[in-house]
């Protein structure tokens, strides 16, 4: 187990060194979430206090998925991904390492977004410990989701387009801008199937002390989704060996 975690850590460390300055990572992982957050918070009031936690979840989600996606796509395109398969380790270390890199990048982004939120709304969390835990859980879940998506994309050159096809609708369907309870009936099942919905709800609870679904349920779903995404990524990596 220790060896597995060490391998994952080394992969994550290498990814951060290599990909955190890539244009796609910076623009979609840092700039977009911060600008988006600032744009929604510019008008102060009750709505900005309500929307802010969801925007934090969105920032973490975009940052983590962008970082993981970039690292996998570049390595697949230039053939260096296969090098990871040559090391004497359990293959799941690759999925874990790639996700850990995205998680760390998501945490960096969360600090920036929380600062923006504080400066623009003065909002502080009701449950700071839960907020920290939620940020970490969201980053892990989003990274694993990004890794899975990156392996499912056949043409790596279209990765950000594909990512945004999946991510951008989530902004409107995950209860970030409009509460899930107010969505049309036909869209509600879609909202409950999206990973970002549960992060937004849990962050809202951590900030405001109330949310649209029980915090324990949100936390459980986030953890289960993170595990499922990791296992699926591992499965796809194994299947990709010709």
């Amino acid at each position: 187990m220790r060896s597995l975690l060490m391998h994952a850590y080394y992969i994550a460390k290498k990814d951060l060194k290599e990909y955190y300055m890539k244009p796609g990572t910076i623009s979609w992982g840092l700039l977009f979430p911060v600008v988006f957050t600032a744009a929604f918070l510019i008008k102060r009031g009750v709505y900005s206090a309500w929307v802010a936690p969801g925007l934090l979840a969105l920032s973490v989600f975009f940052s983590s998925t962008s970082m993981t996606g970039s690292s996998i796509v570049f390595e697949r395109r230039f053939g260096s991904f296969e090098r990871l398969l040559l090391f004497p380790m359990r293959l799941i270390a690759v999925a874990l390492g790639k996700s850990l890199g995205g998680t760390l990048f998501g945490l960096i982004s969360s600090v920036i977004s929380m600062t923006v939120i504080y400066l623009m709304t003065g909002a502080t969390p009701t449950h700071p410990g839960l907020l920290a835990a939620t940020v970490i859980l969201t980053a892990v879940q989003a990274s694993a989701f990004g890794a899975l998506l990156a392996f499912l994309v056949r043409d790596p050159s279209n990765i950000m387009t594909t990512f945004n096809l999946v991510r951008l609708p989530m902004i409107f369907l995950s209860g970030i801008i409009v509460p899930v309870t107010q969505l049309p009936l036909v869209l509600k099942p879609v909202a409950y199937a999206l990973p970002l919905t549960y992060s937004a709800e849990l962050m809202r609870y951590a900030y405001l002390g109330q949310s649209g679904m029980p915090p324990a349920l949100s936390a459980t779903v986030i953890v289960l989704q993170a595990v499922a995404f990791l296992l699926l990524t591992d499965y796809i990596i194994r299947k990709s060996i010709p």
């Binding site: 290498k14 060194k17 290599e18 090098r83 090391f87």
Partner: peptide, 30 residues
């Protein structure tokens, strides 16, 4: 894998890492 080394037909180390970091990463992973 612990007993062998492979140099593939393309030089596919990590492009944004320095020579030193590439070597250290391979040492870490092994």
């Amino acid at each position: 894998k612990g007993l062998i080394g492979l140099v593939p037909d393309t030089s596919n180390l990590y492009s944004e890492l320095t020579c030193w970091d590439n070597l250290i990463f391979h040492g870490e992973m092994h």
